[in-house]
């Protein structure tokens, strides 16, 4: 599956730097580190809950840098008025997790 990831390299760099600034442990950010960042978007908590569901692809309660990029992508799109999908469209699944 060589479909390009919808997260563009420039955007990925921005998301990666936010990821690093949050102090990941072992390459992972726990929910309590990511939660305040997402709350900062002022989006409704039920929307953020769905963003988390869609981003935490392995359901381990933590986000690695690719999962975090998916979360940030969805938050930014939601802030632009795009609805958060009910399930993750294939182009949004990080190439590393297909």
């Amino acid at each position: 599956n060589d479909m390009p990831w919808v997260v563009k390299p420039e955007e990925k760099m921005k998301f990666d730097s936010i990821f690093e600034s949050l102090g990941p442990a072992g390459g992972m950010l726990t929910g309590d580190k990511v939660k305040p960042v997402l709350l900062n978007s002022k989006l409704p908590v039920d929307i953020l809950g769905r963003v988390w569901e869609l981003s935490d692809l392995d359901r381990d309660g933590m986000l690695d840098r690719d999962e975090f990029s998916v979360a940030m992508y969805l938050v930014y799109r939601a802030l632009e008025g795009e609805p958060v999908p009910m399930s993750l469209p294939p182009p949004l699944v990080p190439p590393s997790k297909r």
Binding site: T30, G31, D32, V34, K35, L38, V45, D46, L48, G49, W52, E53, D56, R59, D60, G61
Partner: peptide, 13 residues
């Protein structure tokens, strides 16, 4: 790690 009630891994639930 998550509040009581939680088998959930979602910090927003």
């Amino acid at each position: 790690q998550y509040p009581a009630g939680g088998s959930s891994t979602n910090p927003f639930l």
